[in-house]
Structure formats: C-alpha cells, structure tokens
C-alpha cells in the first residue's frame, strides 16, 4: 500500500490549526471515552491512514481469498458441500464489498484501492498465497484460517471507527459459520477412510504455521501495533491473540482426532499463556515480499478479471449516462 508522509498534510493545513485543535480535542475525548469516531468527524491523518491501510488490506484479503476456495467449487465431492462452499465464497465477496465501503467513508474510492491491489502495491493476508491443493484444505482454511481471522476480528467489532466496527459485526457472524463448516469438513474426513484422514492431517500440517502467522509479526517487531492500540483500533497485541488462538485449536484438534505439527505447544502455568514452537518468520517475510507459492498467480487472476471486465463496466457506465440524459430530455 502506498504510504504518504503525514507531516506534509499537517503543514498544508496550517491555516486550519484552530479547527484541528478543536477536532483533536474532540477526537481525544471520544477515544478516552472508548466511544466511536464517525466518517464526518475530524480525525488525525495518521488515524485515517492506518484505517485505510487496515480496512483495505482486509477487503483485499477477502477478495483474493475467494481464489483458493473458488478452486474447489467445481470439484467439491458432494452437492451439499458444493452449495456450502459456493455460499461461503459468496460471503467473502460480500465482506470485500462491506469493507471497501467502510474504507470509502474515509475518502478513498474503491477503484483506487483496486488499482493498488492489482499493481501489487497493496497487501493482503499472506495465507492466501499458499495453494489449496486438496479438498481437505477447504476444511483447514475454514477451521484454522477463518478461526484465526475470528480471533483477530472479534475485538475489531469494538474498533473506534464506527463503520469498521459495524462491518466487523456482520463479518464475524458469517466467519464463525465458516469456521464451523470447515471444522465439520475436517471432522467428516478424519472419521472417513484412511486416505481421507491422511488428507485432513496433511491439510492441518500445511496450514498450521501460516495460520499462526496471520496474527502478524511478533510484538517486538510489529510496526503498527502500539499506536493502533492507543487509538482503540486494536485491542490485543499480535502475540496475545496468537496465544489465545493456539489455546483454542489445541483443544479442538483433539475432537478431530488429528494432531498439530508442533511438539512445543504447552500451557505455561506461571504466565497463564499458551506457548508454541518457533515460527519461520523468514518464510513469512518471503511470502509477504511477494515470493510465496501463489503470489503471482493470485494477482494475475485478479488483474485478468479486472481487465477482462473493463468493457462490461464501461458499458454499464455508458448505459447509465445515456439513460440519465434521456430522462432529462423527457
């Protein structure tokens, strides 16, 4: 995502110093009261930029996330599973739409965000740069990836920016449904034939570490965390959320009769926290830098869909303009 120097903007607005001071006072009061900032309210540039970055990354993740699951719509092994998967991918497109809309309330059009995405300038969740090779990945994506997303997103329902918090309420409801569907896919496979059970275990093995990395870098290396917490956007640190997630899945995996590929998971009685084995952050950074297994494929698909659809969007715009003109004449 393109970042701009927030100081330039502040200098350009020097004339509005008084307004800004009043705005800042109001903003600080709202944040201190843990209440909500709405789109017309004054907000610091950094707050606006942080939200645009975070909300658009989230929207892009939903949109790119349609691809690994879309990859299995055609091959879903039962019609019921096909229907559930189709509905799920459709929900993701819907989440993308709410989130782009929330970002638009901050003054950035969806077109611009989309252009940033297809130009490779925006980020989205690294997890979607891993391939969905087997049907069991549909289960593991639901259980682990959507599960991690829920851990991240439930606290965001209380985010200080109103449109984001409200969008997250609906997103979280649907995500929790997706997580249960994913868990059910794995449960069915784990209780199925030996080949099915192996498929399920392989998928969990493959997605465990990438899912843990979805919470972002360790707190010691997280660039944005502390300011976001001060602004009541983030409520818990990356590591806090990651520990909480490990505590959840370590119990759930027992119900599945599968294992997590991490021998170092243990509950630390002293700290009251779950501990887990070291994650390969070099791999994370490689994928983040665009060198993951599917980065190029995902962006190419998005770019092609956008470019192939240009004539359709132009037609719709031309039709609407012509219709408006005719109505004016009439």
């Amino acid at each position: 995502m393109a970042t701009q120097d927030s100081d330039h903007h502040a200098v350009a607005n020097a004339d509005g110093d008084e307004t800004a001071a009043a705005g800042q006072a109001y903003f600080d009061k709202i944040i201190a009261a843990d209440s909500r900032i709405e789109p017309p309210d004054w907000m610091p540039d950094g707050y606006r930029k942080t939200l645009i970055r975070q909300i658009s990354q989230h929207a892009h993740s939903e949109v790119i996330g349609m691809q690994p699951e879309g990859n299995w719509i055609g091959r879903a092994p039962s019609l019921k599973r096909k229907a559930i998967l189709m509905a799920k991918v459709q929900d993701e497109a819907g989440h993308g739409l709410y989130l782009y809309s929330a970002a638009e309330t901050l003054g950035i059009p969806r077109d611009v965000l989309n252009d940033q995405l297809i130009a490779g300038k925006a980020r989205y969740s690294s997890i979607f740069n891993y391939p969905a090779r087997s049907w069991a990945d549909m289960g593991a994506i639901g259980w682990l990836v959507d599960g991690a997303a829920i851990c991240n997103q439930v606290p965001l329902c209380r985010a200080s920016f109103g449109p984001y918090g409200r969008a997250m309420v609906r997103v979280c409801k649907e995500e929790s449904f997706h997580q249960r569907q994913g868990f059910e896919i794995l449960l069915e496979l784990a209780n199925g034939t030996p080949a099915q059970k192996q498929m399920a275990q392989d998928a969990v093995d493959g997605l465990y570490a990438p899912a843990l990395m979805m919470f972002g870098p360790p707190d010691s290396d997280s660039a944005h965390s502390s300011q976001s917490m001060a602004w009541n956007i983030k409520r818990f640190s990356n590591d806090e959320l990651r520990q909480r997630f490990v505590g959840m899945i370590v119990e759930q995996v027992k119900v599945l009769g599968l294992t997590l590929p991490d021998d170092d998971i243990r509950f630390n009685e002293e700290t009251g926290k779950w501990e887990y084995g070291e994650l390969d952050w070099d791999e994370f950074n490689e994928v983040l830098a665009g060198r993951g297994p599917c980065n190029a494929q995902r962006l190419t698909r998005r770019r092609e869909a956008h470019e192939n659809g240009a004539w359709v969007r132009e037609a719709a715009t031309a039709y609407a303009a012509e219709k408006a003109k005719r109505e004016q004449v009439a």
Binding site: M66, G70, Y100
Partner: peptide, 18 residues
C-alpha cells in the same frame, strides 16, 4: 461457478454465484 473470482465486478461475483 467458474465465474466466482473472475467476474467484471465484485457485485457480479456475488450475483453469478448466487
């Protein structure tokens, strides 16, 4: 179902998959 993630607009991804 093929159109999902390939439609001209996000709204059409939703419409066609629906």
């Amino acid at each position: 179902g093929w159109w999902v993630s390939r439609a001209p607009e996000l709204e059409e991804d939703i419409a066609l998959s629906n």
